[in-house]
Design a protein around this nucleic acid. Structure first.
Lengths: 253, 253
DNA sequence: GCGTTTATGTGGTCTGGCGCACAGACGCTG
DNA sequence: CAGCGTCTGTGCGCCAGACCACATAAACGC
């Protein structure tokens, strides 16, 4: 089916007033995002900020040994490249495409300028960064305490939520590298879930059959993050009013 | 020995121009921080932002089961209460005092107002938040991949760095709860380290004897975070110039 | 100094997840 | 449709760290 791309498919961009978004449109460049693609590496200066529409990106920390772990996921609710406006210039994490799709990107200069304009976009990005930090905290604790099966459930749910589809294109190998566990661990956990009728999979494809069932197998972390994401989306929908109130309350001119 | 408290003992505050700091001083309140004290709980609205001088604070994520894990530490290089200016209003984490000492605090209203003033303080706080996110990412991966002994070394080093002292007042029980592991695990790891002559401890006190030895036993995570912290401190020292350059480059008036 | 509280030592058992080493099996490409 | 590369299934042995149940011992209050 023919599909029309629009910046408003990204919730952050969609929250901007029409005028601001129009002004930005000239700078927004639609780019395809391929599965497994590396958007940036730790230490390197970021060139672009990405606003995913249909793609999903994974923020990843890779250790010297090569072992790694996902610290947060980014879908059409957010942006990849936070460090651009946080002042450090580089990131400790790398960003990898977890599900193919598209994103709009902005050069670092433009993003920085818009952010420093201190308007609504600044508020939106900070609000989003807050949610990102929540994800990271939760992930840190989850990595310590929950089983592979629980984490797989969490990951599948959060991915299919963002993909707006129950059919995911991904290998067990890749999932394992995201979660920072052995591939065999994923095979085993996925086998159990398939046996329980919650998912079905074949070589590189996973279908979520019963989200509610997965949710009972998942750890609380899924629900916690989802709740925060929903709160964010709600805030984004009312961003202009919320922002006006905030500004008024804190006495900014 | 008599000890004079000053806001400039906190690096963020010290980076402010004299005039700005003087203006803020009227609002800064010196408070003692007791070991184990809870500064804020998840979900609750934050009342204050804390700028530690001699105290060290631990950001902690607690799960429904009661299990928990530290996600980052805050010493005199930073501030506790990031969420205040990030827009969300609440935090998923709780903040616990990891080493007794003092901090200056600011009411949420004052902090928010100063932050929205979009001056140097805003830059400083964002720059610091960036470092905080790095800590969280590293912690997430560290929790997945490194042994208790490695993590204990990392924790002891980072704590004694911030405490500016090799003598820490803390129980194994508390360390265990910080790292999200069993107390027995800490007893065992600490026993090994003491045997190796790297530390000495007695009921509630731990002395770091050989930092360099601990560093070889620690995982890379210690060095990674320390490097980022040093980069931050260096940036803070040159904050005014850096900020001027940033503003000039991005064309802000 | 004495008892209570709180910290630490120790030992035994159990299991999740790792590392390794293959065997099968799907699917793309030529 | 044959062949090869990439995924996936399975079966070991192994060990860090969890859970449980006490034994000891240091500090503190009275």
């Amino acid at each position: 089916m023919p599909f029309v791309h629009s910046p408003t498919q990204n919730h952050l961009l969609a929250a901007l007033p029409a005028a601001e978004l129009t002004a930005l449109t000239a700078h927004l460049e639609l780019v395809p995002m391929l599965l497994g693609q590396l958007l940036y590496e730790p230490g390197a200066a970021l060139q672009y900020a990405y606003f995913p529409t249909t793609a999903i990106v994974s923020l990843h920390y890779v250790m010297e040994s090569g072992a790694s772990a996902e610290t947060a996921g980014v879908g059409n609710e957010g942006m990849v490249g936070i460090a651009l406006f946080m002042g450090g210039g580089t990131t400790a994490s790398s960003a990898v495409v977890r599900a193919a799709g598209h994103a709009y990107r902005l050069t670092s200069q433009v993003l920085k300028r818009e952010f420093d304009g201190a308007g609504l976009l600044q508020y939106l990005l900070l609000r989003y960064t807050d949610v990102l930090m929540t994800q990271m905290s939760v992930t840190a604790a989850c990595n310590r305490h929950h089983s592979i099966e629980q984490q797989l459930c969490r990951w599948l749910l959060s991915t299919s939520d963002r993909a707006l589809s129950s059919e995911l294109v991904i290998t067990q190998e890749l999932i394992a590298s995201m979660l920072g566990v052995r591939r065999e661990g994923i095979t085993e956990a996925a086998g159990k879930l398939q046996h329980a009728g919650l998912i079905r999979y074949r070589r590189g494809h996973i279908s979520v059959l019963e989200p509610s069932g997965l949710e009972t197998h998942a750890c609380e972390c899924y629900a916690v993050v989802k709740k925060e994401l929903n709160r964010l989306l709600s805030d984004l929908r009312h961003a202009r009013e919320t922002y006006a109130v905030t500004v008024a309350r804190t006495g900014q001119s």
